[in-house]
Structure formats: structure tokens, C-alpha cells
Design a binder for these strands. Structure first.
Lengths: 337, 337
DNA sequence: CTGAAAGCGCTTACAG
DNA sequence: CTGAAAGCGCTTACAG
């Protein structure tokens, strides 16, 4: 691997001149030397050492994409990307970063780890964070002074860019759809709503739909837990035991909803005849199960893509005030309602 | 962000001494200065600039994980990670890299892009590549002289570590299972088998099972195409038209197999009564469809984990000759056969 | 148009 | 036990 100095020697010029050619500052170099150097650059397949460049320029072209998560000390238990939601997001983020000339560093971050160390270590140019809650923002992300885009995060974000979905509205539309179909005993299956976040917003929408339709909420209708396929199936087991108490369920996410449907069927209930189920996300796997899942679709690819756009805009110095985007949702009617 | 020089000033010592404390070379520093420096290090929340460190040490602690792929110029068409196979793999790779003190850089690489530039640019310590074929190895990966672990790659790998699954044996077991269940007209749905790779190996196993059971292969039994859910459904359409020609199908991957089942059902065929389907991978989504997918399970998490182990072993200087691991497979009987 | 020099933050022999 | 100096590969004012 040839360095600038070696190239300079071969071309019998100073490394400064080589640098000028590399950076296409052609007004500073004569045509002949320029061409001579360019030829050598190609012949030696010169590739700049980004560590040296970044050390000097104090920027790295690295974007850190991170997901806060309780990290189990067992690879078989860290399954986030098994959920196609995460997959679709990283597809899109990687695509746009590459297109924009940045490099993707990915890392899960645990509740205790301080993210700012990582940011300082690598001098990352920007950070994309998925699904943080208040507590984490106060501890894990404190003192990060590079541009950050929060995805699916509510709370304390005045200074940072953020992108969310119409979560409250989505919860409302989903529940309203069930009500319009004549359902009155509508359970809700969500991940934790203790802190303000995607789950609590969707839950708020659910509650609003009940309110506006004068359906009194019953505490027993709320099921909270880890948003996995397995937990959905588990919840379904409990619901199946009091099946007369429910005629429909609004479920926080598609993965969870598919688990719920599976669990209901395993306990002899028919979907949607005995009980309707509506999900949230619009993943392709909703089409795999039977009945196919009715859901609230969001555009995950757009989410990832725009997260990068927001960041790049800021890094280019084109952005002014922090932006807070809210992406629309759409009811997709399939067969589970 | 305090640098070593600033810390040195505060502690009224040379930066050398600070460096020695940071690297815990305690025999070179007196107890008092050591404690004084350590206190300042904590107070200022010192984090080393990895660019400087790496520039000097000529190693980066970055591992590049890359997947060769035809890259569409449309984020909605780059859907690799929607497949939970990829998701499970990156979960596991990230987990073990973090555990081993390395950083994960991820990037798709197109057919033409030269990967070695990226490797040189970032001085990456090692590379993990998923599913390359001969042609790509000759062009894209030429002249990479850092440790590389190839996952799911056959061909020309004498000098590199590699991990594959018992693909041929898996194809054999799958097909044999169908034959034992009385099937004789067994179609095979695969991604391209033109070049030696995972698909061709699984196909070889299929052919061997036919041979050993004296079932002559019929050219019309082979369906080749892009290994997606959609393509599976499309193939199923063609198969449904000549449904009497088949009583079973061995499908290259679970995602594809689920598409096939969906397509068959959409065209009025019953699985497994009219036609049996067996997949390959053992993804959780095989349990979502109806009937649940019978498949050949491989341990994807182990694959990712061991890929990192192989790399780290080499980086630690513990490894000698290149290793070629083959992970076992297992027939999982569900309901689609 | 070209070059000598300083410096980014760190590490590594070497001298005392 | 402590420090002065060189150097990793690059960029950036500055001088000529």
C-alpha cells in the first residue's frame, strides 16, 4: 500500500503536490505534473489512509447506528434482527449512508454503557438511535455533542432531529376499525407503556378511540410485555381462557400480533370469527400467517432513509433548527378482522 | 474532549507517563503519579482517539462484515435483511465482535466494487464475507491481505478460513425424507446453481438422494430463480399448472419455501395432501405459515459466532493453518410433508 | 505552480 | 521511575 510520500518520491514532487492532485485542486498543479501523478496513483492503486486523514480533519465519515437493548450474555438470546422491522431499517440506512459517502458502524448498546465514549473514540460524525426511552437518553446518551437522529423516540428531544410514525393516530385508526366492525370488547397487547414511547403512543390512540366511541375501558383489557412472537403467543393463552371477555385485540406490532394469532388458534379460537386481531407495522410476514394479518402499515424504508437524510443535511451544514418528522400510517385490510 | 497532552499538563508529567498509566504498564510509574493520573483520567472522562492510536499501531479493531449483492438503485429493492437468516447472522456477529473488543462496520458490496479499497481505507483488521461465488472472489476480493472468513462460500478458499453448513447432506436428508414418505415425483426449487455454492450443493444432495433411490431425474423438475418469497410464489404458480407432475418439492430456503406454499394454496392445492414441501434453514417464520414448514435446520447463530471466533483466533496470532468448518444440519418435522 | 514545516493524538524505542 | 524525540499518513496555512 503506497503512501503519499512514496507516490511523491516516484513522481519526484512533494507530498503536498500529490495531496493537491488527490483533492482535485487542479488550479494549484500544472497539467503535466498532474497527469504524471494521476498515472502513478492509478498504477499503485493508491487508497488514502482514512485514519490519518480523519485524525487531521477531525471527522470520520463514520455514522454510528445503535439500538439500546438489554443485552443478554447469550448470543441465542439477542434476536433483535430476527424481526424484519429492524432488518428493513438497516437495509435502508446502509443504502443511504453508502450513497452519501458515509460508513456504517453498528452496535447494540446496553442500559449501562455510555454511548458517548464510543462517539468520542471513533469521532463519529453522527449517530442514529432507534427506540430510546427517557431514562436512556439521560444516562446512556448524555453529553453526546454530535448530530443525533432519534428514530421512534419520544421525550426530551428539542435539540435533536427525530423521526417517528403517527403512532397515536395509528392506534386510533386500528381501534376505530375494530369498533366499526362491531367490536366492543377490545383488548390491547403492548410492550411496556410505563415510559413515553412508541408503545404508549399507540396505546393512547387506542384509548382515544374507545373514548370517542363511548366504550368504557376495562383494566383487564391491557396486556403488557416483551414485544416478541413468543410473548404474543403466551398472552394469547391467557386471553383464550377468558375468551368471552374479548371480541377483538389491538396488538402493538406485527410480530407480536402473529404470535397472538398463533396462540389463539392453538387454544381453539378462530380468527377472526371468534376474535379479531389487528397489528401494527405492515411487515411482509403478516401475509404468511393464516388468516393474513390486518394491520397499520408504516413505511420503514422511508424511515431509515430519511434518518440518514436528516443527518447528512446537518453534516453538510445545510440544516438549521432541529426537525421532527412524523411519517403517516395506513390501514391495510387483510383477513384477521 | 481531553487529549493525552492535556492530561499530562494537568498532572504535570510527560504524555509518555500518561500513556503508560492508560496501558497499565504500572511497573514504569510510581504509585503516587499513577494514582494522580488515574484520578484525572476519570474526572475528565478521557477516551482515547482511536484514529491516532490506530494510525500508529497500524491496526483498527474494525471488522468489516460484508454481503456481496446486486445493488439496486432503490432502497425499497434492497431487502436482504428482511430475511431473518441475515438478521440472525448479524445479531450473532455483532454480539461476538463486541464481546471480543472489535467494532463492526457493515456494508453491502456490489459486483463491481473492489472491496480491497475499503479494507485499505480503513485498515480493517479482518473481513467476514457472506455467500460469495467464484467470480466475485476473483474480482471483488482480489488482493485482500487481511484475515478473511468466508461464510457459505465454496470455491478457491485454500488460504482462507471458511464456514459452511452441511448443504449437500441437508439436500440429501430433505429429499430422502420425502422419498421415505412415498414421494417419487420430487421437484427442486433453488436459486442459481450455475456456479458452485450453497444452492448447487443442496441441489447435489437432492440429486444424490434420487440416485440412491433409483429415481431418474427429470429436467422439468428443476426450477431456478431468485431466492425470495415472491419468486417462490411465482414458481408455485407454474407448478400448480402441472400439478400431476409433482407430489413433493424440495425448496432451497425457508423464505422461498413459504412463498411456494403460499402460491400453491392460492392455486387451490393442499399442502401436504396434494403436494409436500420441505425447506431449508429452520427459521422461526416457518412456524407462522400453515401448514408449519418441515425443514432442514441449521444453526445460524453458531455460524456467525464461530466466524468471529475464527477471525479473532487469527488476529490473536493463535491460528495456524486455515480452517474449514462444516456445521451440521437436522431434519425438523412439522406439517408440510 | 511548487515545497518546507507544523500538527492531528497517539505509541514506541531510547536515554537518563 | 521519568522524559525528549521520532514517527504513523495525512492536511493545511504559509512562503517563495
Amino acid at each position: 500500500m503506497a503512501s503519499i510520500v512514496e507516490i511523491a518520491k516516484m513522481a519526484k514532487v512533494s507530498k503536498m503536490t500529490v495531496s493537491n492532485v488527490i483533492h482535485k485542486k487542479y488550479e494549484k498543479v500544472s497539467k503535466e505534473t498532474r497527469e504524471r501523478i494521476e498515472r502513478i496513483l492509478v498504477e499503485t492503486n493508491y487508497t488514502p489512509n482514512l485514519f490519518a486523514r480523519n485524525l487531521k480533519s477531525n471527522s470520520s465519515k463514520i455514522i454510528l447506528f445503535t439500538i439500546p437493548q438489554t443485552i443478554e450474555n447469550d448470543p441465542y438470546k439477542n434476536t433483535a434482527f430476527n424481526n424484519p422491522f429492524y432488518g428493513e431499517l438497516i437495509n435502508s440506512i446502509e443504502f443511504n449512508l453508502r450513497k452519501s459517502g458515509y460508513y456504517l458502524m453498528f452496535r447494540f448498546v446496553s442500559d449501562e454503557e455510555i454511548l458517548s465514549n464510543l462517539v468520542l473514540n471513533w469521532n463519529v460524525d453522527g449517530v442514529i438511535i432507534l427506540g430510546a426511552v427517557k431514562k436512556e437518553i439521560r444516562t446512556v446518551f448524555k453529553d453526546i455533542n454530535v448530530p443525533v437522529v432519534f428514530i421512534d423516540t419520544y421525550a426530551d428531544l428539542e435539540e435533536s432531529d427525530s423521526i417517528v410514525t403517527e403512532d397515536e393516530q395509528g392506534g386510533f385508526i386500528a381501534t376505530n376499525h375494530l369498533i366499526r366492525r362491531g367490536k366492543r370488547k377490545i383488548g390491547v397487547v403492548v410492550s411496556s407503556i410505563k415510559e413515553i414511547g412508541v408503545a404508549s403512543k399507540r396505546y393512547d390512540g387506542y384509548r382515544r378511540a374507545l373514548d370517542e366511541n363511548n366504550i368504557p375501558f376495562d383494566d383487564k383489557w391491557l396486556f403488557e410485555g416483551f414485544p416478541s412472537f413468543e410473548f404474543g403467543a403466551l398472552i394469547a393463552q391467557r386471553i383464550a381462557k377468558e375468551k368471552d371477555a374479548f371480541d377483538a385485540l389491538f396488538v402493538y406490532s406485527d410480530v407480536m400480533a402473529i404470535g397472538v394469532i398463533k396462540g389463539l388458534k392453538d387454544h381453539g379460537l378462530r380468527v377472526p370469527q371468534d376474535i379479531s386481531v389487528i397489528g401494527f407495522d405492515g411487515l411482509y410476514i403478516g401475509d404468511l400467517c393464516e388468516p393474513r394479518l390486518t394491520t397499520i402499515k408504516q413505511d420503514i424504508t422511508a424511515k431509515g432513509y430519511m434518518a440518514v437524510d436528516l443527518l447528512v443535511r446537518k453534516l453538510d451544514g445545510r440544516s438549521l433548527a432541529p426537525e421532527h418528522l412524523t411519517l403517516p400510517v395506513k390501514l391495510i385490510e387483510k383477513e384477521s378482522v
